[in-house]
Design a protein around this nucleic acid. Sequence first.
DNA 1: CATCTATAGTTCGAGACGAACTATACAGAA
DNA 2: TTCTGTATAGTTCGTCTCGAACTATAGATG
Lengths: 183, 183
Amino acid sequence: MAAAAKPIRLTTTSHVVLCLLDLAGEATPYELKQMLVNSIEHFWPVPHTTFYDEPARLAKAGYLSERQEQGGRRRKRYTLTDLGREALRAWTQAPGAPPSQYRDEAMLKVFAGADPEAAFAGRIDWHRAQLAELEGYLANLKEGHEGRREDEWRGPETTVLGGIEYHRQMIGIFERFRDAGVR
Amino acid sequence: MAAAAKPIRLTTTSHVVLCLLDLAGEATPYELKQMLVNSIEHFWPVPHTTFYDEPARLAKAGYLSERQEQGGRRRKRYTLTDLGREALRAWTQAPGAPPSQYRDEAMLKVFAGADPEAAFAGRIDWHRAQLAELEGYLANLKEGHEGRREDEWRGPETTVLGGIEYHRQMIGIFERFRDAGVR
DNA sequence: CATCTATAGTTCGAGACGAACTATACAGAA
DNA sequence: TTCTGTATAGTTCGTCTCGAACTATAGATG
């Protein structure tokens, strides 16, 4: 029914919104942001303002339906339309994905001649904190297993396991680097 | 002398340009892009069009001086001004840096329920190719050591070593994942 | 009912990104 | 010479992304 106004390009950000809404059923921008923390944020950072812009954009193009709460904050609640569900399915099932990106300003500083110790200060602690967060989230997920269909938790769990592995390896890299001293 | 017109915010992109020009002495946008390939691109991707926009922006603010070739393509050649050199130095010497970011659309797909084998198809090969490229670049760098001041190659070399380590670990992660089969 | 803090939402402008296109240079074939 | 192909070099433009700064509502505390 939702008349697709003008066609838009679906970006990765779009798919983040679509897949969060698929999990949540219905959600406000604020709730979407909460869902991101401790989960996908580790692999795809999204600033919170995006969750106010992007759903509106998707709704206008017919991928979401939007309804506004009547009292209080009059928040907007979004759900997937059939078009949105279909777009998500198509994206999910298409094999492959663009190569991953690793962005590190500290690397840049070292490239420019900075002292690595200084540039990477705090990194090990940071990765450890991320790791701890993900491990907590994993425990949470496991508790929620009973009474859920596997396809509801398998994806998030694999992702979190991947993240844990990633941070472990990064910690290893920086520890070895530190122990090697200034080369 | 270069009258600093209106002050601009220096972004990471700005610092990429500044540090490349510091290495090159003088360069055209095209040359800057060439320098990026096989080196910083691994830690900070920058689309080539940026090297036409950003130097112009920096020049307008007094960080670079700009002169245009007379014949042929009338390319613009940029060099650091004292202001630019100072900005680079300040950034390089400031300790710390924002946390690194890892972005991976395949992870997102898995989160959304995709088959990991399909989503990560080709990843190991891709990391191996990156690794090979960096190893080649490292060999290049080593050849260039003689007759150069250490501070000209130490930064790039450390960076490349870091990149090599990074890709090795990522290959390890994906190999272990593959060998574990579908969990 | 005043105030504090957490939660929720918005605005805006600058910057990043990439598709698509144009232009120049140069080498070898016709 | 002119033509053609290909590599090199540069540009335009619109959309998307980002984050700082701000406003508003809700519920708790005194």
